[in-house]
Amino acid sequence: MSQAAIPVFDGHNDMLLRFLLNTGTEKECSFFNETDKGHIDLPRSRKGGFSGGLFAMFTPSKFNTAGISFDPSDPENFKPVDQAFALNFTNRMFALASRLERESKGELVIARSSGKVREALAAGQLAMVMHIEGAEAIDAEFDALEVLYAAGLRSIGPVWSRKNIFADGVPMAFPSSPDTGGGLTDVGRALVRNCNDLGIMIDLSHITEKGFWDVAKISDRPLVASHSNAHRLCPSARNLTDRQLDAIRESNGLIGVNFHVAFLRDDGHHNAATPLDQIVRHTAYLLEKLGEDGVALGSDFDGCLLPDDLGDVAGLPKLLEQFRVAGFGEAVIRKIASENWLNLLERTGI
């Protein structure tokens, strides 16, 4: 990372899934060597000022020999996932993260507390906070939750965009309200309480509107959507309504701006020729709704279609420059880039 680069702590990426699925294929590469594959590796992270974030562990519903075969219109991609399979798959991603930490010789660390995140950033290390996207790996008795917490899990999204024993997830629908299904089940309510007790953040980015309000009633921690945008500007089911944004602000919570073009554009199109000012547009709106302490970044690197002008993690300085062009002050830019996430992790009890 160059001295001039503002450090970025980001709310969501799928790098571990990409590396795991590409193992043994022509797409396999090393995290420690710069390539043009995917969005994240260590050299490109250094170039872009990417200093850490929430690293997701997600179990897909459907695979092929080249990795995920994902089509939002294919119902096979949203089928239920068996708990034993999801736990095994999650363990494999956790093992991959642990191997990367060991092989990095101190350049990358799994951070198990907000204090460790701050220490890592101060030391120039890349800080990984372990996150589960869709809690299929967790059993109804929460034995797996205890074990994964001991290993370093610090954040959970109860659902991805599919139903599980905890709640309903929102579909990848456009245009659509996020009010698409049921809320938390009894086991889902117990999951929220257990996470509150342990100090595991609850991520609301993929949950239905009913589920959102159920969590808001139960949780005693800030409300967080790690990688979502403003529904008012892009009416995708994955984005949040103004009323939800108001609740996040009232809870002293946070939203991470998602870079996926279909969650940015007012037409919902999967078009990489989407200018960076669309990210700026959502960020400015969210700043208006939540204030300068409630907005951060939640890129969805390695799990989304990025604007061509951003490209990958090395392009983060281009986005920060667009924030300057839009009139954001340096203090606000630093908050959005990293400080708001670090403060949120502390408020959550991590």
Rank of each mutant, 00 (worst) to 15 (best):
P7T: 08
F19E: 14
F19W: 15
N22F: 15
E26Q: 13
E28H: 08
I40H: 13
P43Y: 14
F50P: 07
G53D: 10
V81I: 13
T90M: 13
N91H: 06
A97G: 13
R99L: 11
S104Q: 10
K105Y: 14
G106K: 09
E107H: 05
S114G: 09
L121Y: 10
A123H: 05
V129A: 04
M130E: 02
E133W: 10
S155L: 12
P158L: 11
P158T: 05
S161Q: 03
N164R: 11
S176M: 09
G182K: 04
G183P: 12
L184N: 09
T185R: 05
V192R: 00
R193P: 03
G199V: 06
M201S: 15
I202D: 10
H206G: 07
I207T: 15
E209Y: 00
A216Q: 08
S219D: 02
D220M: 05
R221A: 09
S228D: 04
S228M: 06
C234A: 05
C234L: 02
P235R: 08
S236N: 12
A247V: 00
R249W: 01
G253Y: 02
V257Q: 09
L264P: 00
T274Q: 02
P275L: 12
A284T: 13
E288N: 06
G291I: 07
D293F: 00
D293M: 01
G294V: 04
D302T: 09
C304M: 14
L306V: 12
L306T: 12
D309V: 04
D309F: 01
V313G: 15
K318Q: 14
L319Q: 07
L319P: 09
S338K: 09
W341Y: 13
N343S: 14
T348W: 03
